[in-house]
Design a protein around this nucleic acid. Structure first.
Length: 937
RNA sequence: GCCUUGGUGGCGGAAUUGGUAGACGCGCUGGAUUCAAAAUCCAGUUCUUUCGAGAGUGUGGGUUCGAUUCCCACCCAAGGUACCA
């Protein structure tokens, strides 16, 4: 039988826990290494085999770095605020805190079962008030901050007030809502407190504003842009509509350029950086103003191609553009209004699905070209989006395909401004090797030259300037939910006021129901005690609200990403009650050295975290600007779903081979009811779900064969494989190594247990190296040179692989070593002891046991990592001068046991050699044992 | 459409970055051990083949003595993204 993994794993897990083996010291003289996993949301379903993939990688790196002499911070916690617990509460009435606690307990059991070396003494939970008090505190800081674009950093709001006191908005460069307000110092001083607050709110980094938001009626809440995927909610897939609501927002747009630039200095995967770049969506170009004919009004457009200014033949406004009604002529009014009404009816989704359709209408109005003063017709078209740029474009049909299509469709003029380019069939969008023509003072120039000159000329005329726009929008921060951090705000005459810092945490109140109130207020509206008493500085009953000393509290809560945007700093000093982490702790740990998690967080968590870190850095609260130096995206482990095939309107199910040419409906069935040969356990299926009990199954060769398809692992697809069963059958060490062996970390791969016996065999073989029969037998004799070579080769390979995160090939290296040592009959301490340390990060339980059997009192965790001795790595290398046809030529023979004569003979025999050598001098012959490979000339 | 990543046996996947393609594992075939099985061990396993050899890393070209690796064009897959001006 195999080694007793069950006893060993239970035993060591208990010892590690009782001795706090993985508790990390701080401060320490050792160099630090901080390796972190994205903390999980504790869902009711528990962990499946996909979750641990990243945790195993980080655990291997953490253990490896400990052996290498680093002081390793390797914590874990829970992102425990979230929607599922709340929805469960709505259905059952059970408090989300209770559900969360139960789920966390289950997660912890599963995590412990796999032997992870987390320092649990630093566990954080975002739903603990001892944690979220600091989330609220950061919110307060953001509220009392503004963004100085001149210094390019966030600053305290007091600095802004100082500036306004002395200079008004003169020389002020600050991130703000659209239409930056202006005032003189006198204006400011003459404002009353309320007016000042309203003014300041437009500059605060977290602000309350009437904004167009993504409202999801089914979930009853607003969603951030990254939580909406293709027009439906990311969670649940419910439709989402645009709606104007008064909401808290975070001014992430102020940081757009830094978030973009910062990507250059962090070692994150290229695809993920690319996603963030796209999301930020920087476009450089110019802002150009067109006068409307017979009016003082100007239409402002944004273009990335100022060089095409002379190719403009019409303007297009979004149907929602604010001046559409005003400029439309009487004759066109009916048509325009009909078009606007029709456009408003079309939902976002319809607009997206009908991209091909060209629609638009003429307003009857004309604009004047800013340089030539030519009359240019103004159109409306829904290909122009109100939410991007200024909601208006200058249409250049010869240089933009959409403008070209629009012009062709409505028979508008197309002017060619490119030299020697044919634009009869399509627009010319290429920028390289293009010369501008037909364009006044920029004729004959290249595009970059023309761009510069046009911007300069527009500037002279006061008709435009260089401009940059971003796709990144401010992030909506209010959620109409119960299970989230309360926003530490109360309202005096409708104006938001901060709950004082010293009164935090503002604890989540008890509510009678978790649903919105009858009048549509968020669930916190059901709390009876949710008012702020400014005389006592505490939460009191709503009855006492008098708007003099007792005021209503904010009823919205924070979104899920609030707590996860700074937690990596909290682990550095998880129990501090004076600060979110002490200066000393942060000065020592600085940032995460290696961060592991899925790429699905690219435009959510990872962008928000970078934003908050920049902000905290500007305020001198964290020592580094980037919170994670290196990041690795582990690929998803996919499930192999199983299907049975039902004939419509019947209870007849066809085996997969019988479906050909028939109309069938595939139905998911639980993968645990299917054998490795895809045979269905029919009796099991009938018991599994009652509606199968009266079904009939048509078999092939006496079996029902299911169909298979690779999909994301999910409860609803019944394809979830749970690690507990694998641990029970093969042990945690096997599971850990098998998940690594499956393939490269970043790659998505279907879960398949077909190969797991190979890893299990390997661990048994490794165990047997130390045993003779049942007895532990290790020799203290000197090992053979061959065995030493095997050892040092393996040290070299495995170490390199871990450094490069190529963990699948390091598992192979262990297998090779074990096979070689077995055939060498090696059981020497000098070999096996270092090999055990080498393997310990991968298979900690078995190695800890063997380490103890080898006579060590201390945990293997503290053993020093073995170093490869280069003397045993080199192959025998010899260089021989060899003569061909009487002429001397230099030939190098590598790693060979052949004699000079043998090499010479072999080279001469090699057929191809003859042709290569004809008249040329060979510089190098590479020889591997017993065979000539090639010749370098 | 655009961006990113990838395409290698029956399968998961290696290949020191231009030098024996297919490591390691699964599966399969044969053998040893066994009354038998499990377990274990040994050998073989890219394809074709007239057993000489020939072909072969998505397809077609190119550079090179030599290409899975570099260059050009194309095809396919996965992920991201979009009437973004």
């Amino acid at each position: 039988m195999g080694y007793p993994f069950q006893d060993i794993e239970e035993k060591w897990q208990a010892i590690w826990a009782s001795q706090q083996t993985y508790k990390v010291d701080q401060p320490s003289d050792k160099p630090k290494f901080y390796v972190l996993d994205m903390f999980p949301y504790p869902s009711g379903a528990g962990l499946h085999v996909g979750h641990p993939l990243g945790y195993i990688v980080s655990d291997i790196v953490a253990r490896y770095k400990r052996h290498k002499g680093f002081n390793v911070l390797h914590p874990q916690g829970y992102d425990s605020f979230g929607l599922p617990a709340e929805q469960y509460a709505i259905q059952t009435g059970q408090h989300p805190a209770v559900t969360t606690e139960t789920n966390i307990k289950r997660y912890r059991e599963q995590l412990d079962r796999m032997g992870f070396s987390f320092d649990w003494s630093r566990e954080v939970r975002t739903s603990d008030s001892s944690y979220y008090r600091w989330t609220q505190w950061i919110f307060s800081l953001l509220f009392d901050a503004w963004y100085d674009t001149k210094q390019d950093k966030a600053r305290p709001i007091d600095a802004l007030i100082q500036h306004l006191e002395h200079f008004g908005t003169q020389d002020l460069e600050a991130a703000c809502d659209e239409d930056t307000p202006t005032c003189t110092a006198e204006d400011w001083r003459s404002m009353d407190e309320m007016e000042k607050q309203i003014f300041l709110l437009r500059f605060r980094l977290t602000y309350l504003a009437e904004t167009e938001v993504n409202w999801c009626p089914a979930l009853g809440t607003v969603l951030a842009n990254d939580e909406v995927v293709q027009g439906v909610s990311e969670r649940g897939g419910h439709p989402v509509e645009r709606k104007k609501m008064k909401q808290w927002s975070m001014r992430i747009s102020a940081f757009a350029d830094r978030l973009l630039q910062g990507l250059e200095s962090i070692d994150w995967p290229e695809p993920l950086k690319e996603m963030q770049r796209n999301w930020i969506g920087k476009s450089v170009g110019a802002s150009v103003r067109f006068y409307i004919e017979n009016s003082q009004r100007q239409i402002e457009v944004f273009t990335t191609r100022p060089d095409t200014l002379f190719g403009v033949t019409f303007l297009t406004l979004a149907p929602e553009h604010e001046w559409v009604k005003e400029i439309t002529t009487a004759q066109q009014r009916a048509e325009v209004e009909a078009y606007i009404a029709q456009a408003a009816q079309r939902s976002e989704r319809e607009r997206m699905s009908e991209v091909e359709r060209i629609s638009g209408v003429f307003t009857g109005a004309f604009a004047l070209h800013p340089i030539t003063n030519e009359k240019i017709p103004i159109w409306i078209g829904d290909y122009v989006l109100a939410g991007y740029g200024t909601g208006a474009v200058m249409a250049v049909p010869c240089g933009d395909q959409r403008d070209f299509d629009f012009a062709t469709h409505f028979k508008l003029p197309i002017k060619n401004i490119f030299k020697d380019v044919d634009i009869s069939a399509a627009a010319h969008t290429a920028k390289e090797n293009t010369i501008i023509d037909n364009s006044d003072f920029i004729d004959g120039l290249s595009i970059p030259e023309a761009t510069q000159k046009v911007i300069a000329e527009l500037g002279n005329k006061g008709m435009g300037e260089g401009a940059t726009t971003y796709r990144l929008r401010d992030a909506v921060f209010s959620r109409q939910r119960y299970w989230g951090e309360p926003i530490p705000i109360y309202y005096v005459n409708g104006q938001p006021q901060l709950v004082p810092d010293e009164c935090l945490p503002l604890k989540l109140p008890e509510v009678s129901k978790y649903l919105p109130t009858a009048d549509g207020a968020p669930p916190l509206g059901n709390a009876s005690e949710w008012a702020w008493d400014t005389t006592q500085n505490k939460v009191v009953s709503n009855d006492k609200i008098d708007d003099k000393t007792v005021f209503p509290l904010e009823k919205n809560t924070m979104p899920g990403w609030a707590g996860s945007s700074w937690y990596f700093n909290r682990y550095m000093d998880a129990h501090n009650t004076e600060a979110f982490a002490s200066k000393d702790a942060m000065a020592y740990w600085k940032e995460v050295d290696l961060y592991l998690g899925g790429s699905e967080h690219a435009t959510g968590h990872l962008l928000y975290s970078r934003f908050w870190q920049y902000f905290l850095y500007d305020f001198g609260l964290v020592p580094v600007e980037n919170f994670a130096k290196k990041l690795i995206n582990q690929g998803m482990i996919l499930g192999e779903s199983a299907f049975v095939y039902r004939i419509p309107d019947t209870q007849i199910y066809l085996s997969k081979g019988l479906c050909k040419g028939k109309k069938v409906i595939p139905v998911h069935v639980d993968v645990s009811l299917v054998s490795a040969q895809n045979e269905l356990d029919i009796e099991g299926l009938k018991k599994w779900q009652p509606h199968f009990s009266d079904a009939t199954f048509e078999l092939e060769d006496g079996k029902y064969i299911v169909g298979r398809e690779v999909e994301k692992m999910s409860k609803s697809k019944y394809n979830v494989v749970n690690p507990d069963a694998i641990c029970a059958q093969y042990g945690a060490d096997t599971l850990r190594m098998y998940e690594m062996f499956l393939g490269p970390i970043e790659q998505a791969k279907p879960w398949n247990t077909a190969g797991i016996s190979g890893v299990s065999n390997f661990l048994n073989k490794f165990w047997r190296l130390f045993h003779s029969g049942e007895d532990f037998v290790v020799s203290d004799d000197k090992p053979t040179k061959e065995s030493l070579k095997t050892l040092h080769k393996t040290i070299e390979k495995v170490t390199q692989d871990i450094e490069q995160f190529s963990l699948n090939t390091s598992v192979s290296a262990f297998m090779i070593a074990t096979n070689e040592l077995t055939s060498q009959k090696c059981n020497h301490r000098e070999i096996l002891e270092p090999l055990t340390v080498l393997l310990a990060p991968f298979a900690p339980h078995i190695c800890e046991e063997l380490w103890a059997l080898l006579g060590h009192q201390d945990s293997i965790t503290n053993a020093a990592y073995p170093v490869a001795n280069p003397n045993f790595l080199q192959d025998d290398t010899k260089a021989y001068p060899i003569s061909f046809n009487g002429k001397m030529r230099f030939t190098l023979a590598l790693s060979t046991s052949l004699s000079k004569d043998e090499i010479e003979a072999a080279v001469m025999q090699e057929e191809r050699t003859q042709t290569y050598l004809d008249g040329k001098t060979p510089k190098k012959v590479i020889v591997v044992p017993n065979k000539i490979v090639n010749i370098v000339i």
